[in-house]
Write a protein that binds this DNA or RNA. Structure first.
Lengths: 339, 339
DNA sequence: ATTGGCAGTCTGATCGAGCGAGTGCCAGCA
DNA sequence: TGCTGGCACTCGCTCGATCAGACTGCCAAT
């Protein structure tokens, strides 16, 4: 095991390396931190840390750089997570309180996080699988085209345009709307498909085909609610920190455009009791092996939740970013959970 | 004036430079193109082209590179715009035909363009300022919270959650919904604000305040329709072509995240009779001075239109990109104009 | 366990030489 | 008048050598 002091040396190395992007040597540590021992002693500790693979030397005779494992230990040991400054908290609330609807909350949140951390920010849309249907609206667009609008009590709205196999008059649309809402309003989303499938029976035979098309659209709406989505902002920040990547940032950006990768990542992240987690370097997929992802969860309503977080080079300011992610997640939870 | 042959030399230089990213010399031109004259003659032409500032030499003794002006002349003179291959046309139609709604059309279009051109793709949402109100739906979320859903015949749907100053019972919401639709359905968007403002009079005095809140929300909806938005895809492509930028791509990416810049750009671009335009290098704003933007317009319905296009380094394959942008714009016009 | 000292190693910057690509110019030719 | 081959010249780039500086690892002493 490494000594107490060695861990503090690790902390100093992470701290200085994050600040300067230069490998840090024993001399620099005794200069900038009060260890009360000589450089030679620090060197011994560094040899231990290297033994444990917490730090590594880029070349035989240069300073040391934290490894992924080193960052991991740093985060686990020293995540103090001091609360944000008053001004920052103020910025969060005043910015998010202006949101006009659910989409707007997410759009604002992601921009906010990106600005607070100077990293790429990610916000996952909540999977409203157990939300309930609030209302279904049918809007005729032309004689045979109908728009279905599907509203859930989570506040989410989907629309879809369908082509009917017959000309739908006002009366039919009215009947359909009334029966749809009677059958489905208040239902949990997962109950929608069976109910929708059985709807056709309640109509005259010559209308059943048209009702079937509408039922299909409703199932599509449910799928759309189940399908996860996420929004992203601040991709430019990755390019700014390009120097931190030994390869190119190109594969990272490609992975970011591929939502699947990110959704998988989010689904794998377990948020622990402190409310915020980090995945560092090779703990991630191949494409993200030089990045770290800091994540927290937020609640929507009473029983639904999703994640948000930031992504950046492993050489990032974990303390600040973890504090920001946690604070924003908490604020969003309060905003969306209050109803 | 420059001779006919000199223009063809320019074309050869642009062609080779775009392909190789290396300054092209007189020798390389006579080798790779059939000019039937010697390198010395080409050199004379190149001197002329340099005189006209169509090409420039990075160093005293190296090959030549096209200037912004050179690309401009190239595009104006040699934009042959041959139609896309059958396979490409096939890809466009099969991919876009799967769209389920308006948002989906734009999301697919932007991804498609980005893949066809390997550049950053941009699609502007149409400003539906002269669309008409199709339907207004009110959905109670809780005793004092109401969601307003605003649907236009362009197929666009906005929602917004408002806080009422009183508890709204079913009857009031029903009355409000009926009167709103009676007064506003079928109206042009620009007529909504005055009508909405005068709505309160038709209600009992103790309800007027609540109606005012709803009217305000409606005005917000109209604004949201007027406000331009755009979607983007393929930002990673910019990073891939980073070598084409003398500075960093960072300011370019920043400008891309700032929608205002792009909307201004789109609004300034005039699409000529060929249906597709390019803005090259310094013709753009400072931040985009090393990029070129290829744009075309598409129609939505009968009297509304918006733009789409791609953005990349000035050293791009103009012929291919202009052809792709034009083809996609035409397809989207057909898709959205048919109704 | 800690320390000062010392030898050894590696990087990064700087410099100069040589190479090669490419130009500009000129005199001669159709 | 326009085209061509030839030639001197200019640069940028690469390679190798050199040098200063920064750190380490080890060792003997405390």
């Amino acid at each position: 095991m490494v000594s107490e002091r060695a861990l503090h040396v690790l902390r100093a190395i992470v701290h200085d390396y994050v600040a300067s992007r230069e490998p840090v040597g024993s001399k620099a540590i005794v200069d900038r931190h009060q260890f009360g021992v000589s450089a030679a002693t620090i060197r011994n500790d560094m040899a231990l840390l290297e033994e444990e693979e917490l730090i590594t030397a880029p070349h035989t005779s240069s300073g040391r750089v934290p490894t992924d494992k080193g960052y991991r230990v740093f985060v686990d040991q020293f995540a103090d997570l001091r609360p944000l400054s008053g001004a920052q908290r103020q910025a969060i609330s005043s910015f998010l309180d202006q949101s006009v609807d659910l989409d707007d909350v997410f759009a604002r949140t992601v921009r906010l996080l990106s600005h607070l951390t100077n990293q790429v920010a990610l916000v996952q849309y909540p999977a409203l699988g157990n939300a309930r249907v609030r209302h279904i609206e049918l809007v005729p667009m032309s004689a045979t085209r109908l728009m279905t609008v599907f509203i859930t009590d989570g506040g989410r709205v989907d629309q879809r345009i369908i082509e009917l196999p017959l000309e739908a008059d006002e009366a039919f649309v009215g009947e359909l709307r009334a029966k749809l809402n009677a059958a489905l309003a208040g239902q949990v989303l997962s109950d929608v498909p069976p109910v929708a499938a059985s709807l056709a029976e309640r109509f005259a035979p010559d209308r059943r085909e048209a009702v079937g098309v509408v039922a299909e659209a409703l199932i599509g709406h449910v799928d759309a609610h189940r399908t996860d989505r996420l929004v992203m902002a601040g991709a430019a920040n990755l390019v700014r920190t390009e120097g931190d990547f030994v390869g190119s940032v190109y594969p990272v950006l490609e992975a970011l455009e591929e939502q699947v990768t990110l959704l998988k990542l989010f689904s794998e992240m377990q948020v622990d009791e402190t409310g915020v987690t980090a995945r560092i370097g090779r703990e991630n997929d191949e494409a993200l092996k030089e990045t770290a992802v800091v994540t927290s969860a937020y609640r929507v309503g009473t029983d639904s939740s999703a994640k948000l977080g930031v992504l950046g080079p492993t050489r990032m300011d974990y303390s600040n970013n973890m504090a920001a992610v946690r604070a924003v997640a908490r604020y969003v939870s309060r905003l969306l959970g209050e109803e």
